[in-house]
Amino acid sequence: MALDPATIRRIARLARIRVGDAEVARLQAELNGIMGWIEQLNEVDVSGVAPLTGAAQMALKMREDVVTEGGDPAPILANAPARSGDYFTVPKVVE
């Protein structure tokens, strides 16, 4: 299944990465090259194989319900490219 320009634009929008027309053409060639190479995986017989999600083979540890963090907005906002008081800011969103 080859990626057409519309698909490139759709996933670029999903990923929130702006792509120009020239870039779409280049990406289409590159991504189709990679996806074409990946198609080799269709040779593999995976019937009856349980998927492996992660490399860690253990049960999830849980932590106690204790407040150990927060309390100070300063370090949270220290790297903010834009802020208003102790809020982060973005262009007005219309819901």
């Binding site: 990626l3 490139i8 996933i11 999903l14 990406l27 991504l31 990679i34 996806m35 998927p51 492996l52």
Partner: peptide, 25 residues
């Protein structure tokens, strides 16, 4: 973009899920 594509609706099973099974192998 590749990651977004292989997880996107309609492709998850063909790519990501299949990859996880091969990872098990």
């Amino acid at each position: 973009l590749i990651g977004t594509y292989v997880l996107s609706a309609g492709y998850y099973d063909a790519y990501y899920l299949r990859a996880q099974k091969i990872r098990a192998l």
